[in-house]
Design a protein around this nucleic acid. Structure first.
Lengths: 305, 305
DNA sequence: ATTATTGTTCTTATTAACAGAACAATTATT
DNA sequence: AATAATTGTTCTGTTAATAAGAACAATAAT
């Protein structure tokens, strides 16, 4: 594969107009420039210059290659600068759409840390569990939980999200503890409306076999935290992500149920428009979140990522 | 500038999932891969991987860099393949718009040569002196003479076109030979309608000073070859590109006039849509034309390029 | 607890790149 | 027209960069 040095040499010879001039500007011997050039030509099996031993003219293919090389070198420089630590201070607005519970609980600390690390950045946060249209509404970035529908957006997976079934000790004492998923059909379940089939709970048993149970629900809501609170008050059994219930579980105010079964796991994603080059601050924020959750994951902090 | 080897190594480590695997696939020692990687990280001042001495995970910035690098490497490969001699046989249609006289006289031989060199290529030629809309009418390429208006099209200069003033010996004997541009005002001039001011002929004297003369015209046409023939028959004086009249000049059937003055020079351009990557055959044809005219130029063949 | 695997580091050996001069070819100058 | 100056190429000795290979430390798997 063609090397950047060859490409850069070629470009600079074209721009300087001669090998000698290019060598001078680059501060190397002209013999080296000459050698790189003939090496490149031999590599490609193509003549790049029409030489008259005194003057050099680009051939047609030479001109084509030049145009491509200029673009490529610019891309390389941009990539380097974008990623390099010395990219200068970030500044500007970040308009972010994010889901309510996950946003408040998990993204809150991350956003605070990012704010602190980048004094020039301002956030405009839109907490909302409906799916916003990034492009139409001018968001830089959306954070979403769940499976991604097909779209023109780019996605970066940030965190894995595990869910669990749980209920308060009080409720279990009153209504009994289900030992098998099917028994959920005779319990008061608290269901979350923003999933395709709120009243169908899917799982896998220890052997990996998938199953599902249709649960009765007298209380359904589009807010996980509300359901969590309802469960704490003994209203019934919830199936919710760990990041919502882990604290109550740790404190014993909720008890995990049917733990031999795997309950739906999903992911949190950052979605952003598919432009050829992301703006500095958007990219930096996505990278930051990616690192943030990866580190949280590494710590195995029991929050279920 | 980032080394090419560093970049490729980085990408292959990401894709292989580990340094050892990448080293195996590349057929080099893993120590070399490791070194290239840490070199790259140090260069950028950024951590690309989250290392656990046993497993490697991309950091956020690492992921961003990876995405850019993949694109860049693809661009490089494409550039190389596009330009390399071993690009395989060209094939497909080329829909080209080209001006009448220049097309017939100058492009004809070039197109024939290209056809012969590329058996898989087919041409669809549209000879027309009006300015066609490339994009709307689905042309791959337009060849034009004259100054370019601003447009979204890309242009490649193919040839320089010089013009001269001339008339038949018969006419000159009858009407006299003008010695100064102003005298043209009392001659029968044959004017070309497809220029902004057909009856105003502009020139430069030996000192480089610009002037113009308004010429009378009883015969005006939008076809240079027709005017050329009219001049041959003694109808008057023409100002036409050399590629139209050079043969008659060489044969003495037309005599050049006012040769101490410079008459308008212009260029022939290839115009093509501004897509990120030109199709193989379009690019190859443009390169071919570029070389064709450059070589004709080098031969100094007196055709006035 | 042991084994195998992974990434890093170090030293040696090899390879590739460069500088410098000599040369051939061509344009500018006188 | 002849000379001088400039340009690109080629060659060789030298220098710097790079890889290989082994040893080591750390971690996951058995």
């Amino acid at each position: 594969m063609m090397r950047f040095e060859s490409m850069e040499t070629f470009v600079r010879v074209v721009e300087a107009g001669s090998i000698t001039a290019a060598a001078d500007r680059m501060g190397i011997a002209k013999s080296a420039v000459s050698r790189r050039l003939s090496e490149l030509e031999e590599r490609l099996g193509v003549q790049l210059f029409r030489r008259t031993t005194r003057r050099m003219n680009l051939t047609g293919t030479g001109r084509s290659l030049y145009e491509r090389c200029v673009n490529i070198l610019a891309d390389v420089a941009e990539a380097e600068q974008a990623v390099s630590r010395e990219h200068g201070k970030l500044q500007g607005h970040l308009r972010v759409a994010l889901p309510l519970s996950f946003g408040l609980l998990q993204l809150g600390p991350a956003i605070n840390a990012f704010l602190q690390a980048n004094p020039g950045v301002e956030f405009d946060l839109d907490f909302n569990d409906r799916q916003v249209d990034l492009l139409a509404e001018g968001f830089d970035l959306a954070l979403r939980i769940g499976d991604l529908e097909n779209s023109s957006l780019m996605a970066r997976r940030l965190a894995r999200i595990r869910s669990c079934v749980c209920a308060s000790p009080e409720y279990l004492q009153r209504a009994g503890t289900p030992r098998r998923p099917e028994e959920l059909a005779h319990h008061a379940c608290l269901t979350y409306s923003l999933v395709p089939e709120p009243r169908v709970w899917r799982y896998r048993n220890a052997a990996g076999k998938a199953g599902s149970v249709r649960v009765p629900s007298r209380l359904q809501a589009n807010n996980g935290d509300f359901l969590h609170r309802a469960a704490l008050e003994g209203q019934g059994i919830v199936l919710q992500p760990l990041f919502i219930v882990h604290r109550s579980l740790a404190e014993g105010r909720l008890l995990p149920l049917l733990t031999e079964y795997e309950w739906p796991a999903t992911s949190a994603h950052a979605l952003y428009p598919h432009t050829r080059h992301l703006s500095h601050r958007v990219r930096a924020f996505i990278d930051f979140l990616s690192d943030w959750f990866a580190e949280a994951d590494a710590k195995q902090n029991g929050m279920g990522f």
